[in-house]
Design a protein around this nucleic acid. Structure first.
Lengths: 204, 204
DNA sequence: TGCAAAACGGAGGTAGCCTCCGTATAATAA
DNA sequence: TTATTATACGGAGGCTACCTCCGTTTTGCA
């Protein structure tokens, strides 16, 4: 569901081994970018994924195209995660959990940011699409909470996404506890003026 | 006056040929960055400057150190230019001329910006120093105009610098006529409420 | 099972980075 | 002026990463 896996030029579906290698490359690249920053040798990534360098280049003709694929994949994961959480937790808990996962997730991707930022400002459709999907996921979580009466109704999904993104950006160091506290603060704000009737403990 | 030209480790003055080559490299690099963007091969720069690659690396051990030197030199030039203009033109004309030179100057340096931006945000002392000098030059021009009664007195040098910088950033294309018009507009605003005529003194 | 299309893999050509050291030159002492 | 020495020059060469190309392997299909 994450990747339709079609051939780029002809519309035909990708061969099974091609699909496997493509996904393998994306996850390996994500890990490599996290560990070694955005300028890991592409040959390293191919090597760690257990494929030849030719295979990497066939799937991703440029470094940017690989970074873009990794980024899209990250967004996919985060969006899917929102649905999973909504299925397994009360809406307000799902929202809080998701915000924390989001921040921690971005924290491990810091190495990519220097490459990603210019890409997002030059490739506006990439930005629009991923931003739209992230906003939709945020809105969905919010609205579920509103429907359950555990989250205030006057908050916009886009605004909340921006706020969470701001937390990611402002915490330059690896101070994950700071981020957690900020997320907690933000979350408490989301419940302001709503009866404490959910399944969670009382806020501060 | 621009460069004291001291040896980096020992405090001794640089040998004459070393000074010459260093300056040659900076001006050549500035031209190369303008023409071919920030990732010109360093060997090209050395070649165009007529020195060996070893000489380039001795003066500038990293690419960033060369970019930084070029940037500092550009600021030097602009600051000196302000003094020259003040010596040869009525203050308000000097100010207008300087704003135009500033904008055109930055326009030719666009290739460097992608490298310079991250440098300025990570190297805060570099930013503070150059920004301070540029603000001082702007303030000096402004105050001369105020003293002559041809520029309004309620404008801050830092604000004006920011405004001119904004014009540089907003004009992405090579539309230099647009920039000129914007500078003209801004300049007219600086004279608002002051009697016309650049030599007669009519302080508010 | 056999065949054609699709995908794989990695050798090798290219390019830019950076170091190292023998040679040249400027500064200084005699 | 000449001799001496500290500085600086230059570019060959080793290294690393990029990317292409093509013979080999695998997959999907009849």
């Amino acid at each position: 569901m994450v990747e339709p896996a079609e051939h780029p030029s002809t519309g035909r579906p990708l061969r099974k081994d091609a699909v496997r290698n493509r996904e393998l490359l994306i996850t390996t690249a994500a890990a490599a970018f996290s560990v070694s920053g955005a300028d890991v040798p592409l040959e390293d990534i191919a090597g760690r994924a257990g494929v030849g360098i030719g295979t990497l280049y066939r799937h991703f003709p440029t470094r940017d195209s690989l970074v873009e694929a990794v980024y899209r994949h990250e967004v996919d994961v985060l969006v899917e995660r929102a649905d999973q959480l909504l299925d397994t937790l009360p809406p307000d808990q799902a929202l809080k959990e998701w915000m924390q996962i989001f921040v921690r997730h971005v924290a491990t991707k810091r190495g990519m940011l220097s490459v990603l930022k210019p890409m997002l400002s030059s490739n506006s459709s990439l930005f629009a699409e991923t931003h739209g999907r992230a906003t939709a996921a945020t809105t969905k979580l919010l609205e579920a909470g509103v429907a359950a009466g555990t989250v205030r109704a006057d908050v916009d999904g886009g605004d909340l996404l921006r706020a969470v993104g701001g937390i990611c950006m402002s915490t330059d160091q690896e101070r994950s506890d700071t981020s957690d506290r900020l997320v907690g603060l933000l979350f408490d704000g989301l419940r302001h003026g709503v009866g404490v009737g959910s399944s969670s403990g009382a806020p501060s």
